[in-house]
Write a protein that binds this DNA or RNA. Structure first.
Lengths: 209, 209
DNA sequence: GTCTATAACGTGATAGAC
DNA sequence: GTCTATCACGTTATAGAC
């Protein structure tokens, strides 16, 4: 694309400044509401440079979207598919990791879901979500427990929706949550941290119904 | 704004055709990605007529947003505040009503949440969400049960996030859910219908941890 | 690589005939 | 009330100097 650097000496190259600014603005406003001028200004560079490095708004956006999707899936797929750990353990690690990731990047889920609504097929195929979730070792362990009668017979898909929903939804609805609870950002984070331990307990309880 | 009709004889007035088309397009694509030409075309009318009836894109959007917010809150606030019914009963009715409403208008939650991300304060104040949710009779009953030791001591806010999240999240993430489950629209609806009975059970189980 | 100036285009809104 | 034609503006992208 441009600028081959001989080493990763300096993290604040122009290209990176633009990409970092683009990530912030796209995450907050989505593709359609974002103007390339916003990104250029946030990056502290000239508008022409954006096109010089990334050719077009869409190309830059696709790059950010791909990275965001990877961040959302890769951060957990290795947990899901670790054959050495128990179901219980996976559940706990997953909640901790996801909530930490979302605390740091709270705009990612709504960003992905909003854009997914307009271009579903193109994007979904990129993330191998079925492989990462429904066909994971985690779900295999889940199904075995169902068969052995240790937990009640819920469809794995229902369980996955509950798991991801309990983790993700508060972040997606954070403006509402903060508003009805009169919460500062710090208080909101604290509430989310509490959920790290609560969600695994809740999910286990749900499985015993 | 225009066209005073002497009676509601005909539901397909031009004004209504535009509003109905606007609702569909705005819900699907959001404010920024929607072009007034899209709405006009969907309504089968001329672009000029849109401005004749609603003066501007923003005015039309505000109208749709207000209606959507009301649909999301009013459909349940009377259930929440019915002083004659039990906590249990409210929980069941709420799930049934919400899931039915969302099955009919599945785009409303993501529409609201997306737009909320850009204009939080302006919108949140419009819906009296605190009155409808946290200060409701439903939450009063919840807190009493906590005090009497019948259920474990979860913060009401955590409980509300779980309740709404379990109901709403699958619709917000429906493209992903359909994709990983290989579900047709009909199968997805069936999955949601199952949740009407499951969610109250799950929530009760969670409260016993 | 970085900038200024500008082209090319899309979109919201209006004027004016019917 | 409804249409066609058009304006006015904002935005993406590029040309060309440095």
């Amino acid at each position: 694309m441009a600028g081959k650097r001989t080493s990763a000496k300096n993290d604040t190259t122009t290209e990176l400044k633009i990409k970092n600014a683009a990530r912030v603005v796209f995450h907050q406003k989505g593709f359609a509401a974002t103007r390339t001028r916003d990104i250029a200004e946030a990056a502290g560079i000239n508008l022409a440079l954006l096109n010089y490095y990334f050719r077009s708004k869409k190309k830059l956006f696709d790059l950010i979207m791909l990275e965001s999707l990877q961040q959302f899936t890769l951060s957990v797929s290795d947990v899901f598919n670790d054959e050495k750990t128990t179901f219980e353990h996976k559940l706990q690690v997953l909640c901790r990791r996801y909530i930490d990731m979302l605390t740091e990047h709270p705009d990612i889920p709504l960003f992905i879901l909003s854009e997914l609504r307009t271009n579903p097929n193109e994007l979904i195929s990129r993330i191998h979500i079925k492989e990462n979730l429904l066909k994971s070792h985690f779900i295999k362990q889940f199904s075995e427990q169902v068969k052995s009668g240790k937990i009640s017979a819920i469809a794995p898909l229902q369980f996955m929706m509950n798991l991801i929903g309990l983790i993700v939804f508060p972040f997606v609805a954070s403006p509402i949550v903060k508003s009805i609870g009169d919460l500062s950002q710090e208080e909101f984070v604290k509430l989310m941290q509490e959920r790290k331990a609560l969600i695994p307990k809740w999910l286990n309880a749900m499985l015993e119904v």
